[in-house]
Amino acid sequence: MIRIKKVDNRPLTLLERLYFTEVAAGMLVTLRHFFRNLFKPSNIVTVSYPEERLPLPGNARLRTRHRLKVRADGTPKCVACYMCQTACPAYCIDITAAEYNDGNPAEKYPRGFDIDLSRCVMCGMCVEACPEDAIAMDTGDIPGGALTREELMMDKRELLRNLPGEPSLLGASTRLHNEWDRKVKKK
């Protein structure tokens, strides 16, 4: 919607040109804020960020810190296909692939999965690129200040932290894994 605000460009009156009255009027405004905030600090809008946080609007528009999803049995859904690393415009993802030796048909898993949050631009391309639905940006954590760069380096352990496993049918490797898992459990 376009709104039009008419600016009154009339010449100043004598009282306004004298300036002192206008200064006094301006000071009335600032002083009102000053004294109100002095005696009633609850009006202050500042949020002392790391200690206080505003509730986040919980919807799909929000992209927060990454996490790696896990399968029902706790193994990471990620198969180290490097699609996120390829899609990442900020070059902040670094994966090292390894092979399952226990007969898991998913074959491949990430031995290392590092995200450098100091480089990340929170664009969500990694989530879009993931063919296995293994990475998500829904932790509600907004990566912000840190005292050292190391604190902003997230490794696989941190990315997999405190999350429940979730059964999923998305992704070919996940499907293979689920079939195998059922077979192993039957035996």
Binding site: V79, A80, C81, M83, A106, E107, K108, P131, E132, G171, A172, S173, L176
Partner: peptide, 11 residues
């Protein structure tokens, strides 16, 4: 074809 490109080195 299994479409397991994510774990396939040929991709």
């Amino acid at each position: 074809h299994p479409l397991d490109c994510p774990i396939c080195d040929q991709a």
